[in-house]
């Protein structure tokens, strides 16, 4: 009974059901609390449904949906920006729970933090992360390398002081 023309909708739904918890966790890393994170995921998937006909299939569907969710989470975090551009990566107020449980990851700049979450938590490959965040693959690689370097440096400081 599934209509052929809604196959994309089904794929989005399957992705939603199978990866919901991951989407919420990453959104929580952006917005800081569960309620807004869940809201962002719901809004992100709603946007994906509305725009599903515009998805050309030239990249992974999951990456495309991640972009919707990440965008929705960013919108939930910030007041509307006057003439905001697409590439806004200011550091948001750090979510308390993130600070408590993931102090080193939490203190990364937002772009690095997001890349880390999408890589290690959501399990996306570099290309998918690039598509989700609308950045170059090289930027993903650089962000991860910088994040690693920051964490190693912080660890070395901890050890040196300890």
């Amino acid at each position: 009974m599934r209509g052929r023309r809604d196959r994309r909708l089904e794929e989005i739904e399957t992705l939603y059901r199978e990866r919901f918890a991951y989407f919420v966790q990453v959104a929580r890393a952006i917005v800081g609390d569960s309620e807004r994170a869940r809201d962002a995921v719901q809004d992100g998937f709603a946007a994906a449904i509305r725009g599903r006909e515009s998805f050309r299939g030239d990249g992974p569907l999951e990456a495309w949906v991640w972009r919707m969710v990440v965008n929705a989470a960013r919108k939930a975090l910030r007041p509307p920006l006057v003439a905001a551009g697409a590439d806004q990566f200011e550091i948001a107020e750090l979510p308390p729970r993130l600070l408590e449980t993931s102090p080193l990851v939490a203190r990364l700049p937002e772009r690095q933090r997001l890349v880390v979450f999408l890589r290690y938590y959501a399990g996306l490959d570099y290309r998918s992360i690039a598509a989700a965040l609308e950045i170059e693959v090289g930027t993903v690689s650089a962000a991860l390398a910088t994040a690693h370097a920051s964490i190693r440096k912080a660890l070395d400081e901890v050890h040196a002081n300890g």
Partner: peptide, 22 residues
């Protein structure tokens, strides 16, 4: 020395374990 990869995974796991079951 602790590898950054391990730290990242540990921290994300800790975050996950404390999250409500959405």
């Amino acid at each position: 020395m602790v590898d950054a990869d391990v730290v990242i995974r540990d921290e994300l796991e800790a975050l996950s374990s404390g999250a409500p079951d959405e």
